[in-house]
Design a protein around this nucleic acid. Structure first.
Lengths: 308, 308
DNA sequence: GCAATGGATGAGATGAATTCATCCATGAGG
DNA sequence: CCTCATGGATGAATTCATCTCATCCATTGC
């Protein structure tokens, strides 16, 4: 548990240190200078160290005080921003969409600009987390889920199907299947991140590819999909990754899919609570997401080089 | 001025959201669950938006609540760290040294490890700021100042003299003085950062080098010395920079000094308040700084390549 | 169906934070 | 050199925000 001095004394101190004046700090906080003086003394006693050198007509922070004030200042800054964000802005509506970290970073963030033009007057909050939020409880208005497409209590609209294939930087591209035996493999620990859904591993893939005696264990392992992607782009090895999520990289050529086979995964669905179909938040998000990522709008899986 | 809800309600809310339970939050903060309930309600009214969906036996944050709680959580984290830092640790002593951003980053931080071995039991605080602190008031125990070496009320011990010369990445090294006419110049806006001391500019240098009709205005300008150094390392051009501060880069060869002349600057001094010579903080810092950076311990200015 | 759990609510108690009245030190102005 | 104005310190009094208490309610597990 966190041990903190009275918060009021921290705020009083921060203002006093920033303004180098109890009087001004008092004005800023709307109290009398006496209050600041008491609060600062309280904090100094609590911490057991002086925070100010008292000089006539002004007050100078000590080394510790200077440091503390700077850090507290940024903490209050963060708080003020957070609170301002949480406070509903009149005339603006907010829609919250939840998705996994990778999906959000890869497919939603790059399209967020379109949301603004599509729905002026609306603000978009992307809640990127690999833990599923409780849509029925209202933790978000809608979400993008990976799975079989049936979620109790939720309506799901299919978006795209997931598929996995080997990808790597063109700089290190193996040209034949056999080359893979000597390649560095990049593993993404799917299981951890996406709960119970089955994970396509390199051994699954080797089996499908008919590669006998393939050592599918060596290499780098990541628990964060974005890191695995970055490693692949950096030429650290060959990764077995989601093709839909890599559309931009495959299109620009920083990653290529040297050969098959492709493993079919489950699907991505746009989901929202039953009975919420007419809520404006849901309609707005649905509009945007289906318009941007609906079926056939994301390049499907076709090998970009090589045989088989 | 920052407008914030009562801080207590923010803390209560953050704990409740993190633990998804008013009861647990109450236990963490050492109050009754009722208190949390009241504080959260207060905050919700103040913000004008619900932060929790109340369900039986637990309480689930809304989308806004989730977001707010995460931000508040990190703000409290920062505060707790700051306070823990400010609280004097028994048996440990703290010495605070102030220096400019660039001096600190270039010459002090890399040598901070030695401080620990030299003075076990002491903690070092480096206060890096381009604004001079008030040593007499006690804002720091000692400082490193750039100037003529005489500071009223302070004792100064000369450390090294400053000098400036053209430096650049070996990849783009001009070999003759004349090449400089076509080179990209990197300017560092000394005046802004180091108060009233005179600034060695490219035109000062051109004059000393006897380059007539030299256009000393083109190029990149930085107000932060470290950025200027980074730009030079990145091969963005030729910079007129401090040689003592670039000792590591010059030694490793990522930067070279293609030719002279060298402009002599003022000096760096280790300074502390008069009468403080026997304070243990001052003695400790003096010991370290003079041992590491005393005269002749930093490579002096010698061209590393090329002619005059 | 009943007890246990966890939260909501309103009134009242408590004590932390603010103010008031006063004092002190310094520096500016005459 | 004296006086005044400024800004902070201090302790007692007071206010008001926060907490607790007593009670109630809804849900869930047995």
């Amino acid at each position: 548990m966190r041990r903190l001095p009275p918060l009021g004394s921290l705020r009083a101190f921060e203002a006093a240190a920033r303004l180098e004046s109890f009087k001004d700090a008092a004005a800023e906080l709307g109290v009398t200078p006496t209050a600041i003086s008491h609060q600062v003394r309280l904090l100094e006693e609590e911490l057991g160290t002086p925070l100010f050198i008292r000089r006539t007509r002004k007050v100078v922070p000590t080394a510790s005080g200077l440091d503390l004030a700077a850090r507290l200042g940024s903490a209050f800054e963060v708080m003020a921003d957070a609170v301002a964000q949480a406070r509903p802005r009149p005339g603006r509506r907010l829609a919250t969409l939840s998705a996994t970290l990778a999906f959000s970073a890869r497919l939603l963030v790059p399209r967020a600009g379109r949301f603004r033009t599509l729905h002026p007057g609306w603000d978009l909050r992307l809640h990127a987390s690999d833990e599923a939020v409780d849509l029925i409880a209202g933790e978000a208005d809608a979400a993008i889920r990976y799975g079989r497409g049936s979620y109790p209590g939720l309506v799901s609209v299919p978006l795209m199907s997931e598929c996995f294939a080997p990808v790597c930087s063109p700089r290190i591209a193996p040209t034949r299947l056999e080359d893979l035996r000597r390649a560095n493999l990049i593993h993404f620990d799917w299981l951890l991140a996406r709960s119970h859904n089955k994970t396509p591993s390199w051994s699954d893939w080797a089996e499908k590819a008919g590669l006998a005696g393939f050592d599918a264990t060596a290499g780098l392992t990541f628990t964060d999909e974005n890191s695995a992607i970055e490693a692949a782009v950096a030429g650290q090895g060959v990764a077995l990754l989601s093709l839909p999520l890599l559309a931009p990289e495959l299109r620009s050529g920083v990653l290529i899919q040297p050969f098959g086979p492709v493993i079919e995964g489950l699907g991505f669905d746009f989901v929202f609570p039953e009975g919420a179909e007419n809520r404006p938040e849901v309609a707005t998000l649905r509009d945007w997401v289906l318009g941007e990522l609906g079926p056939a709008l994301v390049p499907s899986a076709t090998p970009s080089a090589g045989e088989t």
